[in-house]
């Protein structure tokens, strides 16, 4: 299959978040960027699907500036065949989805995989918007993906209060959840090969953003913890009942 994997780069999960003095953006000093963990699962799944079927190619696409190229090289080292970067600052989900949709219409992909959300803006919207732009089916939050009969895929997805197994015909957009697979660490051969794999930079279509960030803030700090001894459980329960009113 020809599979497209949408990649975003995000601050490492251990990052302590702070904002610039005008609160307009993230304070990037000392921040390490990684492939968004759910996108990395999408990439690994793409490799597994093509290894199982014995063919096809994998393209990764990113909407953003040249600072994301180390992350794209890492994706190539993990095993993607080529990378595409659409050269514009990502502003909101609709803009990113429109740019990727335009790229997808100019190529021939059977399947688009993306993470279920990025761990920076946590929107979880790009996959669904992309599916609508392309008029393709969407399966959101997939925990397993397998090839089915006659060009279909069998997918399990998380839903409210359970899980659903469903069949979807390609081409389709599927967003990836934990449990789908385990990420792969690139080996030396992959890292060497990544240097010469194609990384194409495309000009954007230039769709503007709908959503504009006014400012950022840190979550309000919480009051100091009130401690109870092991033999004071009735007192703790009383506090939860009377003071916090949560029991």
């Amino acid at each position: 299959m020809n599979i497209l994997v949408c990649l975003s780069q995000v601050p490492d999960t251990t990052t302590k978040i702070s904002f610039t003095s005008d609160n307009k953006e993230l304070n990037k000093a000392g921040v390490q960027y990684i492939i968004n963990p759910y996108d990395e699962l999408a990439l690994t799944k793409a490799l597994e699907l093509n290894e199982a079927s014995g063919g096809g190619s994998i393209t990764v696409v990113h909407v953003g500036g040249a600072d994301a190229e180390p992350v794209l090289r890492k994706a190539l080292a993990i095993g993607a065949d080529q990378a595409v970067r659409i050269d514009t600052a990502p502003m909101d989900a609709r803009q990113v989805a429109a740019e990727i949709a335009h790229f997808v219409s100019s190529a021939s992909f059977d399947l688009v995989l993306a993470g279920r959300e990025s761990i920076d803006y946590n929107g979880g919207l790009v996959g669904g918007m992309l599916a609508e732009y392309l008029d393709w089916p969407l399966v959101n939050v997939a925990t397993s993906i397998e090839g089915g009969a006659g060009g279909s895929m069998i997918v399990c997805r998380d839903m409210d209060g359970g899980r659903e197994k469903l069949e979807v015909y390609l081409p389709a957009v599927i967003t990836c959840q934990k449990e789908l697979t385990e990420p792969r660490i690139p080996n030396m051969r992959g890292i060497m090969a990544a240097r010469t794999k194609p990384l194409q930079v495309l000009a954007p279509q230039g769709k503007g953003a709908d959503m504009h960030v006014l400012e950022h803030a840190l979550p309000p700090s919480r009051q100091a913890c009130r401690f109870f001894e092991v033999h004071q459980m009735d007192e703790l329960v009383e506090a939860l009942h009377q003071q916090a009113k949560v029991l």
Partner: peptide, 15 residues
């Protein structure tokens, strides 16, 4: 919330 609950962002919405 943004950055997985480590921050809060405010947005202006019109349309």
């Amino acid at each position: 919330t943004v950055y997985s609950n480590k921050g809060i962002a405010s947005y202006s919405v019109s349309g």
